[in-house]
Amino acid sequence: MNATPSQPAPALPLAAPRRATMEPPWVRRLLIGLTVVFLGLFLILPLLSVFIQALGKGLGYYFSAVTDPMALSAIKLTLITTAFAVPLNCVFGVAAAWSIAKFNFPGKTLLITLIDLPFSISPVVSGLIYVLVFGAQGWLGQYENAEHPWFPGFQSWLNDHDIKIIYATPGIVLATIFVTFPFIARELIPLMQAQGRTEEEAARVLGASGWQTFWQVTIPNIKWGLLYGIILCNARAMGEFGAVSVVSGHIQGQTNTVPLHIEALYDEYNFTAAFAVASLLALLALVTLVLKTWAEHKKNAALQAAAE
């Protein structure tokens, strides 16, 4: 708390001299106070209110809301979606970072910008593009009572197997992959660029095969960055609302993910149940923050080691 040099000088009535690069105590206290009030009002209070409102009608009600068949079905759909989105984006992230960080080729900067693109697109627009591609009259859409002008084979295959993309699970998975697309790649690219390629070269000269080099040298070096990216990707995949809302169709028990289920409960003025389910996602957010802080620490240590 006290960064001013506090010499044990009881004889002096005045405080020790203040360092030139330190503000007067009243300014410090004011700024700390402002920070605590602002963050308390905007972060801590909302977080607490989620749990308090969730338990507003007692534990029994809380558990019945969370274990309601509709809630369970939403949880299941969210887990399925995440189980597709995170591993796929993980493979993509590692592949993209490998090619970008370990090799030189023209157009690299453009590629990095394109990878980041989904972050700057509104979630609603992210959902919309999949509706345009797969929805009625889309490029790969299902035409009702009509033949598709370009890909009739694909349409009849989907119809024969009774597969729906939009307003069904595949659409939700695709939209989720889109919004979580850059998370892992953008963590790994700078880390692997900083680490360079000499350790891999050393492994190759020592006789290691490409796979051995990748698994025994590259992966151990990037594991914290990878974990960090996976944590962020997972949080967003489980919590995505806007994009999924566009492609879902909102069929309770079928195409509602957890966030969509919360919306449905809220719209029915069933606030306590809505907050009960929301508290699950709030817990997820807290776990994410803890894991993220820990992985970030490890990742920064790896980056620092690379800079040595």
């Binding site: 000499t198 350790e199 070269e201 050393a202 492994a203 040298v217 070096n221 080691a305």
Partner: peptide, 8 residues
């Protein structure tokens, strides 16, 4: 290697 490239 010049900067050793030891596996950290």
């Amino acid at each position: 290697f010049q900067h050793y490239a030891l596996f950290r």
